[in-house]
Amino acid sequence: MLRLPRFTYHRPTSAAEAVKIAADHGPASQYVAGGTDLYPNMKRRVQTPTEVIALSGCADLVGVSGSAAEGITVGAMTTLTSLEKDPALQAAHPALVHAASVISTPLLRNMGTIGGNLLLDTRCNYYDQSHEWRESISFCMKCSGDTCWVAPSSPRCWAVQSSDTVPLLCAVGAEVSLIGPEGERRIPVADLYQDDGIAFTTKKPGELLTHLHLPAVDGTWRASYRKLRRRDTFDFPVLGIGAWLRFDGDVCTAAEIRIGGAGSYAIPATKTAELLIGEKLVAGDAAAEERITAAAQEAFKPTRAMDNTDHFASWRKKMAPVFVARALRDCLG
C-alpha cells in the first residue's frame, strides 16, 4: 500500500500567513493546493516535504472576479470544476474553459485547482514511478540520482511540461501574481517557466502563486487549445497546443503558438507565428488553409518529443504540425 510519508500539517487562513509559515520552515516546506499532484508524488517519494502548508483555508485565494472587458482574475485555489462552470469564463475565455475541462477526470477536477495546474510538476516515465521501481534501475537525476534515463549522456533533465492550461495561458499572454518573502510581483505566465525538467519554474523559494490574470477580451483575438492523449480522460497531454491569433479584419496581426507536452516548457512555435502575421486568414478559404498548413509544418522542428511519455516520440513529433494546424483553424472562428 502506498502511504504518505509523515509530515507536519499547517493550515493558514490567508496567503500572507501561508508565506510566513513557508519562510519559517524554508526548503522543508511545500504548499499544497488540491493535492492531486503533490500527494501522488509524495506517495512515490519523489517529493518529501516535512512541512505541508495546505492552502484550502485561504479564502483570499478562491474565486473569479473582474470583467471580460477589463480582464478577469482567477484565484489560484479556484477548483478546475469551478473554473469550467463559471459563466463569465465560459463567455469570455472558452479556450481556457475547454483546456480545463480536458484535464484528467471530473473527480480530479473537483479537487485540483488552477494554481496547482499552473505549477504541475514536470513528468517522465522514469520519474513518475514508485520508490522501488526507481531504485531498481538506479535513481534518475530529477530525484536522488545523476543520470537522465531518457537521454543518459545528457547533462540535463528532460521531464515533460504536462499542464493543459499552461500552453494556452502562455499563448494568450495571461499573467500571474506571486507573493513571497520579498514582496509581491506580477509576471507574464510565459516568464514563470524555464527550459529545465527539474527547475522548471522561476518561482523563488517560498513564493506563493496567488492569482491568474486573464487578458481583456476586446473581440480582436481568438484562442484555442488542442490536446493529444491516448484516452479521452485521465491522461496528461502528450501534445498540448495553445494558439492565439489577433486580427485586424481578416488579417492576422499577431500570433503566438505554444507546444506543450513536448519539452520541459511550453515551447514557442516562433516560425509558425511569423508565417501567419500579415496574412489574410478566413475560415473555409483555400488560400488560408494552405497558409495554415505550411505555417503549422514549421512546428515540427521545435517539438522536442522524447521517449519519456506515452506514444512513440517520433509519432508525437509528426503530430505536432497536425495539432497546431487544428488549433489555428479553431482561431479562424
Partner: peptide, 8 residues
C-alpha cells in the same frame, strides 16, 4: 465526489 486516497 472526490478521491479519498488523495484527501487528507
Amino acid at each position: 465526489p472526490v478521491l479519498s486516497c488523495l484527501v487528507l
